[in-house]
Computed example of a mutant assay.
Amino acid sequence: MFSSAAVWLVVLIAVVAANLPFVNERVFAVGPKRSPKALAWRALELIVLWGLTLGIGFALEAHLGQRQPQGWEFYAAFACLFLTLAFPGFVWRYLRRH
């Protein structure tokens, strides 16, 4: 896999993972159905999926070559990007008139 394809794969996974807690009522998309699911569950899912996406990115980076060490700035920027990618799902769930 080329490095540019790996980058786009991680971005695609991040978009799907960031919006997943807001588009379904199941816990982690496979657990029991909770209707309505509390915001705390959605936040917990968002944090876990952030870590999972980060792990997939690190695995792809290690597969392509040597993994570079990252400082706290990288994790803060990735968390902000992940929250930005989650905004459409948040708007769809909480700000749209049903």
Rank of each mutant, 00 (worst) to 15 (best):
F87R: 03
H63N: 07
L85W: 12
G55S: 06
A38M: 02
V30N: 01
R42C: 07
Q70I: 03
G31K: 06
W41L: 07
G71M: 04
P69G: 01
P32D: 06
Y75L: 06
Q68G: 00
L52Y: 07
T84E: 08
L44C: 14
L9M: 06
P21L: 04
F58W: 12
A29L: 05
L83V: 05
F87Q: 02
G57Q: 00
A5M: 08
F2P: 14
V27Q: 02
A43F: 15
F74K: 08
A59Y: 12
G51S: 00
F22S: 04
R96K: 12
V91A: 13
P88A: 03
F82W: 04
A17Y: 14
R93W: 01
L49K: 05
R96F: 14
A40Q: 08
G57M: 02
L44I: 14
R67E: 08
R26H: 13
L64M: 11
G65A: 09
L12G: 13
V7K: 12
L54A: 10
I56H: 01
F78E: 11
F90I: 04
A43N: 03
V15Q: 07
A76T: 09
M1K: 03
W50L: 05
L49E: 07
G55H: 05
S35L: 11
R67K: 09
Y75V: 01
V23W: 13
F28V: 06
A76F: 15
M1V: 05
V15H: 08
L64I: 02
V11A: 15
V91Y: 12
G57R: 02
L83S: 10
T53C: 02
L39Y: 13
R34C: 02
W92R: 13
W8S: 10
R67F: 14
I56T: 02
F87V: 09
P69S: 07
F58P: 00
V27T: 05
W50R: 01
G89S: 10
F2C: 01
V23Y: 10
G89W: 11
A79F: 12
F28S: 01
N19Q: 15
V15E: 06
H63V: 07
V48E: 05
A18N: 10
L52F: 14
L39H: 10
A38P: 09
L54I: 03
A86H: 03
F82G: 05
F78G: 02
G31E: 08
F58E: 09
V48D: 07
A77M: 11
A76V: 12
P88R: 06
L54P: 01
R96I: 00
